[in-house]
Amino acid sequence: MIYILEDAINGILMGSIYGLTALGLTIIFGVLKVINFAHGSLLMVGMYVALWVVSFSGLHPYLALIVVVPVMYLFGYCLQDVIIKPIFKAEKDVREPITVIVVTTGIWYILDNLTLLIFGPQYRNLPDNPLKGKMLEIGDMMISVPKLWGFIAAVSTAAAVYWYFQKTRTGRAIRATSLDREAASLMGINQYKIYNVAFGIGTATAGIAAVTLVPFYNIFPTVGVLFDIKGFIIVVLGGLGSMGGAILGGIIIGMIESIAPQFMTATWTEAIVYGLFLVVLFVKPSGLFGVKYDW
């Protein structure tokens, strides 16, 4: 029994990190109404940036946040401004342009394979990592310390972004644009600038997720794909556009992944996750916690 409890706790912790990676996806979808297929690749970029910052400066791995978050914000902001905005403008009338989905897929391929070209396929870890394999013992249970920090980061990031969207002027403008583009534009909101900011925030949260992952996860060019697919499942499960849903969806996936192997072959859990995803999609496409959209 104690093992199941331990697995459940570790599942919740890991799941909240999945949720953190999906948070940016759901923010970007909420505002742009576009699934960002390149999100996993942005996470991968964040992990490489964090790795360099830590190995060049010798700082504590979590202090890399100071560099990674602004860098990722700028990266996302520019990506949206330079590549995605022109297409958005060209397909203004389409509510949910497929072209933009395709372009983000193109960005995914470029980022992943450019990283492969430049840095090679080898797995990398942090050099002399102070958090490596660190465990917290509670009674008979062992709880991973970096994952615990990940959980704290996930919850506080979601809370911070929520507060930002509720209380600040830009946050309100973002919410207005997400509700109705035309009406927001008429109120004097520059919608394209809002898209840039939203994309930047989404990318920055991917950067935070990257920093929490770096101390206990391998870094390699296609690491993003893993989180990409999980991210899609999580956001649909939690409801596209819902931030709390993203974190909770992540925790559900994390729990399934950690508890299910107690009862069956570990590789089957992946099939369960896909099955659950399809069931939710068919039965309740708006997700468990999402707002009902018209599709």
């Binding site: 697919i229 899609f232 399809l278 999609l281």
Partner: peptide, 11 residues
């Protein structure tokens, strides 16, 4: 529409 269909087919 669009995104949901793409995601469903991937999954």
């Amino acid at each position: 529409r669009g995104a949901y269909f793409a995601l469903a087919t991937i999954a």
